[in-house]
């Protein structure tokens, strides 16, 4: 269930050195998006696509069910989670793992037609 989330925590993205405040009632990804910040790739926002995968290296998060195609039970135990499904329970440090992996697109954008 959603919590009112008066309390906010600091989320530090080690890749970019940036941080943002995230409410206890918001997901890490939702909190970032709400402030118009960037750093974690935004995909489905539903724990399904895996592009928002992060490694929480310090701090506590509370996570809802995430796609096992992207986060195994072992991953989850090590703090590898989907940012769209996790809410902070303390200040957080995280490293971004997920990315938007383009298939044919990269080629199409870079080179156009042959």
């Amino acid at each position: 269930m959603e919590r009112a989330g008066d309390e906010t925590f600091e989320v530090f993205i080690t890749d970019t050195g940036e941080s943002f405040r995230c409410g206890a009632g918001q997901t890490l990804l939702g909190g970032m998006e709400r402030l118009g910040r960037k750093g974690i790739p935004v995909g489905c926002r539903g724990g399904g696509c895996g592009v928002c995968k992060v490694h929480v290296t310090a701090g506590e998060v509370r996570c809802r069910k995430m796609s096992r195609a992207h986060v195994s039970a072992e991953d989850e135990a090590r703090g590898i989670v989907l940012a769209c499904r996790c809410r902070p329970a303390s200040d957080i440090r995280l490293a971004v793992i997920g990315s938007m992996d383009k298939a044919f697109l990269k080629h199409a954008q870079a080179g156009g037609a042959r």
Binding site: G43, C49, M100, A103, Q109
Partner: peptide, 21 residues
């Protein structure tokens, strides 16, 4: 491809092309 997919913006949206389940 940009206009083929999104005719108004004429640019590709990365998420549309890459996010799948």
């Amino acid at each position: 491809l940009g206009g083929a997919i999104f005719y108004h913006d004429q640019v590709l949206n990365e998420r549309f092309l890459t996010v799948v389940t």
